[in-house]
């Protein structure tokens, strides 16, 4: 059996890095779903916009500073974060508020149209030619125990876990977090209890765009070329979010990482030993997902809702 598992460590580590990206996108889905029960189909596009905006800031600041250095990247990241917060407020105004009392169906469609708009608008502004993003960590890699990981990947993994911990703490321990939970349980009752529901929604959208933009900033250098197809990664993060159970923050992270590992291992070791796996490489995550949902209809960490007539 040893031959089957040669080098699987490397694949698992790389899978965790890939999965952390899915996890970050899934976290964006989860935050919005948690408070508003809306699935934001535009999360992948938000990530793409973040990547473009960060690229813009890096180019501008490096022009001002006369070269690339750590400060340029930090300043660009700060700029992107400010942009993300503003962007979240805008999205709250144009998507969430007008559609507050509409059926979920309509809101999903609104997010899909938002996705189309963002993708085309980005391409109209930035032009269709792919950009070449620069990684703040260069091409550096770390070698430990026969496993290689790039510094960028390490940063992505760390970032995913920090954000998860932050939001987990926020939702369970702070006043605002509990207010958000209450809003998601029953917006009207929450309003009557004196919770500023409008503000809650705005903050949720701001957080979600923040997560999206940060994942875009981190992911762009990993893609070698930056173009609008990056947004399609949002689709790949769906199974991750569902697997963990929509609305569960640790679920999003664990689901994402699981999906990343499954994908990498199936492309690597599995398809090396079983030829037929090559045929189903890109749907294996969906198959896993459907099987899991058949057993646990609310995902691994989702909580079944009690239904009333």
């Amino acid at each position: 059996m040893t031959s089957l598992f040669t080098d699987i460590n490397q694949e698992i580590v790389s899978g965790i890095a890939l999965g952390s990206i899915y996890a970050l996108i899934a976290l964006g889905f989860t935050l919005i779903y948690k408070a508003t029960e809306v699935v934001n189909f535009a999360q992948g596009e938000v990530m793409m916009v973040g990547a473009y905006v960060n690229f813009f800031f890096v180019t501008q600041f490096s022009g001002m500073a006369g070269g690339l250095n750590g400060w340029v990247f930090t300043a660009a990241l700060l700029g992107s974060i400010i942009f993300a917060l503003l962007f979240g407020i805008i999205l709250d105004y144009i998507i969430n508020r007008p559609l507050k009392d509409e059926p979920v169906f309509s809101i999903i469609m609104a997010t899909i149209s938002l996705a189309i708009i963002l993708r085309s608008l980005t391409a109209m502004i930035a032009g269709p030619i792919s950009l070449v993003p620069v990684s703040p960590f260069g091409n550096n890699t770390i070698k430990a125990g026969g496993v290689v990981i790039s510094v960028l990947d390490l940063a992505i993994i760390i970032c995913a876990f920090i954000l998860m911990a932050l939001f987990f703490f926020f939702f369970n321990k702070t006043r605002w977090g509990i207010a958000m939970k209450a809003t998601s349980a029953d917006a009207e009752a929450a309003q009557l209890m004196g919770i500023p529901v409008k503000k809650v929604y705005r903050y949720v959208w701001m957080f979600a765009t923040l997560v999206g933009v940060i994942s875009g900033v981190l992911l762009a250098p990993r893609m070698a070329l930056l173009d609008t197809t990056m947004a399609y990664l949002g689709l790949k993060a769906f199974p991750a979010a569902i697997l963990g159970g929509f609305g569960s923050i640790p679920g999003a992270i664990i689901g994402g990482i699981l999906m990343g590992v499954i994908e990498t291992v199936s492309m690597g070791t599995l398809s090396f030993h079983f030829n037929w796996v090559k045929e189903i490489n890109d749907i294996i995550v969906w198959i896993v997902l459907i099987v899991v949902l058949m057993i646990r209809p609310d995902g691994l960490f989702g909580i079944a809702k009690v239904k009333r007539v």
Partner: peptide, 15 residues
């Protein structure tokens, strides 16, 4: 992109 943009915009306004 312009076509896609108009399409998305009409859809969003419609909804």
């Amino acid at each position: 992109d312009f076509q896609a943009f108009i399409f998305g915009l009409i859809m969003l306004l419609f909804i």
